[in-house]
Computed example of a mutant assay.
Amino acid sequence: MQIYLLNKTPFEGVKNLILNEIVFFDIDINLHQYNALICTSKNALLALEKSKVPLNLDIEIYTIGESAACLAKKLGFKNIKIAKKSYANEFFKEFKEELKNKKCLYLRAKTIASTLNLDLKNSGIDLDELIVYENVFKSSNEKLIHPSIFIFTSALSVENFLKNYTLYEDDIAISIGKSTAKKLLNFKNLFVCEKQSIKECVILAKKLSLKANF
């Protein structure tokens, strides 16, 4: 079966289906005013890089996922903490006590699927939010093969796909996490990856593809 990945990350034997583009905003922020920087996506850090914001390399970075942590390390940040589980609600449970008594900055997208910002504020954490990028829908005229395996890497990727295409009954959908899966609850051939990683989603897709071909 053909495997489609709703993301631009390249993998052998996988076709990328890009239905969005990232628009970065020009930002001006003094990171030295904060003790902690919350980044749930590497795009937040890319926004800092693109706007050439002077970095406070001693600030504590709190991330969800390896990609954001790897980029933080590449940029030279020294104090990087990765959530044990790659879900916003688990991030909140793990770090809410640690973030208290710290001045925090949450770099985020214009639209977010979670309520992490509200949860942090409601727990008494001193949190500023800064919208640094936006996911914009991009239509496609590409004709898809059915049945196929579709890997969805965010709730927005599901929304964008359904604006442009239809999932057939014999297709297989793979969700990178629980919040993304909520957008696909009415689809019977749905698999939620155990680890919230694009690489793990691709590994699962290839296993399912082999089974389907026998």
Score class of each variant (00 low, 15 high):
L46N: 14
A68E: 04
L185I: 12
T153S: 14
A83N: 03
V136R: 10
K103Q: 11
L75C: 10
N189H: 07
L167S: 01
N20P: 00
F150H: 05
F95Y: 13
E200L: 05
N135M: 13
K85A: 11
Y34G: 05
K102F: 07
N16Q: 14
L99I: 07
L185A: 14
N35S: 14
K100R: 15
K206P: 00
N135P: 03
V132W: 01
L75S: 09
I3H: 00
E49W: 02
K74S: 14
T153Q: 03
L162K: 13
E200T: 11
L99C: 07
S175D: 03
T166E: 14
E66H: 11
I131M: 12
S197A: 04
E97D: 15
A36I: 06
D128K: 10
A113Q: 08
F214D: 13
D126Y: 07
G65C: 08
P54M: 10
A69S: 14
T180F: 04
N79L: 06
I112C: 08
I149K: 02
K188F: 07
L99K: 05
F214A: 13
Q2Y: 08
G76H: 07
S114K: 09
K84P: 02
T9A: 10
I22E: 04
N16M: 06
D58W: 02
K206D: 01
P147L: 12
M1D: 02
C104S: 11
M1T: 07
T166L: 10
K207F: 03
P54R: 08
L45W: 04
C70T: 09
M1A: 10
S86P: 00
K183D: 02
L19I: 02
F137T: 09
Q2G: 00
I203M: 04
Y165C: 05
L57D: 06
F161D: 02
Y168C: 12
T180M: 08
L162E: 15
K182P: 00
I27E: 07
N89H: 13
